[in-house]
């Protein structure tokens, strides 16, 4: 019997129903065979080994499992892996490029926006989705956008500061890019 948590070989045990799916994770195409009931969070963590996506509450409340699904934040603990067939997923491991951190990651470090680190990946991905849609959010907009992600350590104040700092540095980046283009 092959474990659900392994990428299944084609000749999987006959009694296990299997679905084939193709998903783009952090820019990389992955083809997997999984049980239909496998949760997306477990596919990401166990089958793909991307353990930065955490499972906190199992009920879509805490947001530790937040990933970007075609750019929108979703809670991967209450989605099935098969629902991701043909879609793009971004996890925390996809935030930084090889050479540099995302401004959101920089912001969380600079503003002390994390303590135990467990909620951090989901928190940063919700922030990423916000800043993509709204590059210049108010404090209230940041608080609202993060209200699906729970943190027990920080009291949120520094997380909010981190996101606002990231917004600022993204705008600087954009501004210097524009300047570069005009020149």
């Amino acid at each position: 019997m092959t474990s659900l948590f392994e990428v299944m070989p084609a000749e999987t045990a006959v009694d296990t129903p299997v679905r084939k799916l193709t998903v783009n994770v952090n820019g990389k195409q992955e083809t997997l065979k999984v049980e239909p009931r496998l949760l997306l969070a477990h596919m990401i963590r166990q089958a793909l080994g991307l353990t930065g996506t955490h499972v906190g509450c199992d009920t879509t409340n805490c947001g530790a499992c937040t990933v970007l699904f075609d750019g929108a934040p979703v809670k991967s603990c209450t989605m099935f892996a098969v629902q991701a067939d043909g879609h793009d997923i971004t996890t925390v491991e996809g935030l930084a490029s090889a050479s540099e951190l995302d401004p959101i990651q920089e912001g969380f470090k600079d503003e002390h926006g994390l303590q135990c680190g467990f909620c951090t990946p989901g928190m940063m991905l919700s922030a990423k989705a916000l800043l993509t849609e709204n590059p210049n959010p108010t404090e209230d907009e940041v608080r609202w956008a993060l209200s699906g992600n729970l943190c027990r350590c920080t009291g949120y104040q520094n997380i909010v500061k981190a996101v606002l700092l990231a917004a600022e540095s993204l705008q600087h980046q954009e501004a210097s890019k524009d300047e570069g283009e005009t020149l």
């Binding site: 991307l50 930065g52 955490h54 996890t91 951190l101 969380f108 470090k109 680190g117 990946p121 940063m124």
Partner: peptide, 21 residues
Amino acid sequence: RPRVEDNRFIRGKGNYVDDIA
């Protein structure tokens, strides 16, 4: 001082019990 442990946490490279296989 900026936190040393943050370098792994912000990259999703923390090592919690459930991450160990």
